[in-house]
């Protein structure tokens, strides 16, 4: 009888920094991801947020340019975390997920890697937006620069869950071509491009139930100290729960099938 050499399983189900490093390098190689998540939000900000009246009009402790900057940072974080989560779609379409089944990587560790990646790229996106804003006339109180940025980033977790859910729902090579417009509509409905009450009372009421609304309200709160915070928090919590449940449901079906 052949004696087999002792073999061990990797720790943490295969979750490790080496994989995250390689995956980050691959994401940065994808020009579309870079344009969508890092460049576009900053460009939107420069186009819509930096005219003279926005710079002079005051809001909270800063100017309207600063207000729009935070909204665009949220938009960028949202695009970044969604596309991070939606990577699973491309990987399933390419048969890569199946290939990973032939390694010790546990499905849960794989999801964890994707979430970490989504949050890293979301962080970079927020940082880029704030950096562009700081040299383009955005004015915020010092603590708001930090708090608004952090809140935009942390709350974008809801879209990492959304991206994962969609990634498992739509096995497609170019899932972001579908999700990009969806996110734009949701951002509009959630008051990211223009305050929700600009469009009347009914619209403003509906807006409160859409998934982008909460994130935007929370992220801008350190600046404006306005609005009912608990509604926004409830919004984020409920949507995160819904998207996570959706992702888990599809994920379980996926693992059962293969």
């Amino acid at each position: 009888m052949t004696t087999l050499a002792a073999r061990d399983l990797p720790r943490f189900g295969g979750f490790n920094l080496g994989m995250i490093r390689l995956e980050l390098r691959r994401m940065m190689r994808n020009r579309r991801t870079v344009v969508f998540t890092l460049i576009m939000p900053a460009v939107f900000f420069l186009l819509f947020g930096t005219n003279a009246s926005n710079r002079t009009e005051r809001i909270g402790g800063g100017n309207v340019t600063g207000y729009i900057l935070v909204s665009m940072a949220v938009y960028g974080a949202m695009l970044a975390t969604t596309s991070g989560g939606a990577m699973v779609s491309i990987e399933r379409a390419a048969g890569w997920s199946r290939q990973l089944r032939l390694t010790p990587l546990k499905p849960v560790a794989y999801i964890a890697v994707k979430l970490v990646l989504a949050m890293i790229i979301g962080f970079v996106s927020v940082a880029v937006a704030l950096a562009v804003g700081s040299v383009s006339g955005a004015e915020l109180p010092a603590h708001a620069w930090v708090l608004c940025g952090l809140l935009a980033w942390v709350c974008a977790l809801v879209f990492a869950a959304f991206g994962l859910f969609m990634g498992y729902l739509l096995p497609s090579e170019n899932v972001m071509q579908i999700l990009g417009p969806v996110l734009a509509v949701l951002s509009f409905a959630g008051g990211l491009f223009a305050p929700v009450d600009t469009f009347g009372h009914t619209f403003a009421t509906i807006a409160k139930f859409t998934p982008v609304y909460g994130v935007g309200e929370i992220a801008r709160y350190p600046l404006v100290h306005d609005g009912t915070l608990w509604v926004a928090v409830l919004n984020v919590v409920v949507w995160t729960a819904l998207f996570s449940l959706g992702a888990m449901w599809r994920f379980r079906r996926d693992t059962a099938r293969v």
């Binding site: 087999l4 073999r7 061990d8 048969g95 890569w96 290939q99 032939l102 010790p104």
Partner: peptide, 15 residues
Amino acid sequence: VALGLVSAVMQTGGL
């Protein structure tokens, strides 16, 4: 598979 006792070259995909 997880222990690396067996591995495979699959027909298509997986890259």
